[in-house]
Design a protein around this nucleic acid. Structure first.
Lengths: 145, 145
DNA sequence: TATTGTTATACTCTATAACTATA
DNA sequence: TATAGTTATAGAGTATAACAATA
């Protein structure tokens, strides 16, 4: 048995895919924790954020804007509706469609969670100078599409 | 119902936490897919990589090097052992401890998966110039400690 | 026949705690 | 009593397919 401490090799620890995966997980974990007192999880926040900008909207379009499956969205909307944060109204012109929109409480929750998201981002980037933060944002944005 | 497409607001789409989480997930997804033919998942690769550098090592130390729980490691080692990629030998000086190490096949698998990791990283960063890639790596490393 | 919302299922990753055998 | 390994459980996130109502 070796006496030296076991450690992750450099080629892994410096791989951007590994770093992104690790930091991405940590980022989500912190945000989840920081909005828990609002009674929502990150996925709920995504729904509220889209609705704040584009409501009313049908569920399929909402799922598409989130890059998610429409079946997965149903449960989230059930929870958000039960909390009084969103409304589902059936569209009179096409009764298959539900027009989803935010309630006033939903709008407040989105704003508050948005403030928290900015704060958590600040904590996550605390090791970087302001210029570096913007450069990182640019690089990530460039990879994202 | 609005006619314009629903979309994610800018303050979310440009939040570094959101971008990291999204890219981290995508990165892991691609790597998982790319090593599937080796019969391992990313977590197995982490184990192999640590062992390639620091074996033999006890399971608790291995888990610590991976930033993981020792209970979670057990199942991974069972699978790796069943595939003939790692060996567990009981330490004669302390029979509670298992000295874990790589088999020759385990070493080969680690090298092959390492090559794949570099390739996947290259594909992930294809939108960035070489200098930008190194800058990104530096920024991520700076956040990671 | 195609689409919208719904329901069900399964699989992975993660977190936690309790159990055993050794020390 | 403390530690190493093991086992069991539960929750969240994701992916997939099949279903009923409506177009």
């Amino acid at each position: 048995m070796e006496t030296e401490k076991a450690r992750l090799p450099e080629d892994v620890a410096l791989n951007c895919g590994y770093l992104l995966s690790r930091l991405g997980f940590e980022s989500r974990r912190r945000f989840t924790e920081s909005i828990a007192h609002l009674g929502i999880r990150p996925a709920h926040y995504g729904v509220l954020a889209v609705l704040a900008e584009s409501a009313p909207v049908a569920q399929t379009e909402l799922a598409e804007a989130l890059g998610a499956d429409r079946g997965w969205l149903v449960g989230l909307l059930d929870e958000l509706e039960a909390k009084g944060l969103v409304r589902r109204a059936s569209d009179p012109r096409d009764r298959r469609r539900h027009a989803v929109s935010l309630t006033p409480e939903g709008k407040r929750c989105r704003r508050e969670a948005g403030r928290i998201a900015r704060r958590v981002e600040g904590e996550l980037l605390r090791g970087l100078a302001p210029g570096e933060r913007e450069h990182l944002r640019t690089l990530l944005r460039q990879m994202a599409p």
